[in-house]
């Protein structure tokens, strides 16, 4: 079986970013870029499913300008077998990404599709669910466990009130949460090998997808910062302040 993993290039989670003063965008100049952490967990999950013999091939896909090939190569170095880059400089949103991925799903026919549950830049948490709807596949979102069971896959989901396990028929879409696994690091030989792995480039036009934005980000603002607080010296002083000054006790 083939597994398709969709990944996104984002600012490295260790970098603190802020919007430009004029609100026109985020100041990402010189920021280190990485595979979105949730997507990296999806890649790791695919590699483990291949190591278990459940999958025979891992196809990794990303959408964006030429630089996203860096993240595709990184995923190939981790253990993906081949990559598809959907090349576009247009601004993206989950609906158009889901449509592009669906077009690739139709071409490639994967048995399982893995995505990170959300990207740490847009924080939308939408693409996997939208892709599942467009393909009319079942969905297992916020997965903390994935177990193939015969012709189904069992997915344990992290919910507000606890955990839930669903059995999904295949093909299915799974979005990965933080505690699913701990991604491995690439080895130097694998980084070199990844340079030779196949990477194909497509365009939205070739896939017949209209990229017109439905939701436009007009401006970005710096969130209201909390006024500087005070240090207290003791538990007694803390409780006194909470009772008489903040009046929350």
């Amino acid at each position: 079986m083939k597994i398709l993993v969709a990944i996104k290039r984002v600012v490295d989670p260790g970098v603190r970013v802020r919007p430009f003063a004029d609100g026109s965008g985020m100041d990402l100049a010189a920021a280190k870029m990485s595979i979105n952490p949730f997507c990296e967990i999806a890649v790791e999950a695919a590699i483990r499913l291949k190591e278990q013999g459940f999958a025979s091939e891992i196809l990794v896909v990303s959408v964006g300008p030429a630089v996203v090939q860096e993240q595709l190569r990184a995923a190939l170095a981790l253990g993906a077998d081949r990559a598809i880059h959907i090349n576009t400089d247009e601004p993206l949103e989950p609906l158009s990404i889901a449509k592009l991925l669906r077009a690739v799903v139709i071409q490639e026919g994967p048995g399982l599709i893995l995505l990170g549950k959300q990207s740490i830049d847009g924080d939308n948490n939408q693409t996997g669910q939208m892709l599942a709807a467009l393909c009319n596949y079942p969905q297992g979102t916020f997965a903390s466990k994935i177990n193939p069971m015969g012709d189904e896959v069992h997915v344990t989901r992290e919910l507000d009130g606890g955990l839930q396990t669903l059995a999904l028929s295949l093909p299915a879409v799974i979005t990965t949460d933080l505690r699913l696994n701990q991604p491995r690091f690439p080895t130097m030989p694998n980084i070199i090998k990844a340079r030779q792995k196949p990477l194909r480039t497509l365009t939205p036009a070739e896939l017949g997808i209209d990229m017109e934005l439905r939701v436009i980000t007009e401006s970005l603002a710096i969130p209201r910062s909390r006024p500087a607080g005070v240090k207290v010296q003791s538990v007694t002083e803390l409780l006194e302040k909470l009772r008489t000054e903040a009046r929350v006790l």
Partner: peptide, 16 residues
């Protein structure tokens, strides 16, 4: 809506 883990607040517009 907040983006980048709340590092920025986006003002978004839609004509849908």
């Amino acid at each position: 809506r907040p983006i980048y883990a709340g590092s920025a607040i986006a003002s978004v517009y839609t004509e849908q």
